[in-house]
């Protein structure tokens, strides 16, 4: 029963993230087409970016900012001059995009926030944070989040400010001697 719930949650998280990424890609793929159509006037136009796919809200920001609230926000579309002659070299616009996704679990609806940075059509950074308050989901999200991204390295103790070190218990002399004996026997 537990393992079924576990897989259910993991599938939920993965579906949520894939769907959110799909929304992001669809959103600014559309944006490319709209640019030409909406820039006939000389004033900057303010539009509410609103694309609803199921439960998701999405928001786009340009290259300079990256934070986003979870509710719909007016987005300023900058004034554009006549279409330039230079060919666009990337399929997707460089920038940082963020969206919220949510998925159902046996404990209810939970949400995550996904941010990706695109440069030259490559995701150069990705971040997933949990927004859910449900303890169980948060634990699973952390398992997923830290599993997919966080690796650690060792740092010399002399370079770290600390008072104690914790790991496997220091062994008694008898054990260390026995170990040394076995190792030397193995070599001979």
């Amino acid at each position: 029963m537990n393992s079924i719930n576990q897989s259910y949650k993991k599938i939920g998280i993965l579906i949520g993230i894939v769907a959110v990424l799909a929304v992001i890609i669809v959103t600014f793929a559309n944006e490319d087409e709209q640019d030409v159509a909406s820039t006939n006037d000389t004033q900057p136009s303010v539009q509410t970016q609103n694309s609803d796919v199921g439960n998701k809200n999405s928001n786009q920001s340009g290259e300079s900012s990256s934070n986003t609230p979870t509710t719909q926000t007016p987005v300023v579309i900058p004034k554009q001059t006549k279409p330039s002659n230079t060919k666009q070299t990337t399929v997707y616009k460089n920038g940082t995009y963020t969206a919220d996704g949510s998925y159902m679990t046996p404990e209810g609806n939970v949400s995550i926030n996904v941010t990706v940075t695109l440069a030259n059509d490559i995701i150069t950074d990705a971040n997933v944070t949990s927004v859910s308050g449900d303890r169980t989901s948060v634990r699973y999200q952390n398992k997923f989040i830290s599993g997919y991204k966080q690796y650690v390295v060792g740092k010399n103790i002399a370079d770290v400010q600390l008072s104690k070190v914790s790991g496997s218990s220091l062994t008694p002399e008898g054990f260390n001697n026995a170990l040394a004996t076995i190792k030397s026997q193995a070599k001979s």
């Binding site: 740092k155 010399n156 103790i157 770290v160 600390l162 008072s163 104690k164 070190v165 790991g167 496997s168």
Partner: peptide
């Protein structure tokens, strides 16, 4: 390395790297 700590100020505990005990 198993610790019980009671005090007014916190204590910093390094997490030993099992592959290199000179590191955390």
């Amino acid at each position: 390395g198993d610790i019980l700590y009671k005090n007014k100020t916190p204590i910093r505990i390094g997490l030993e790297n099992p592959e290199n005990t000179g590191q955390v």
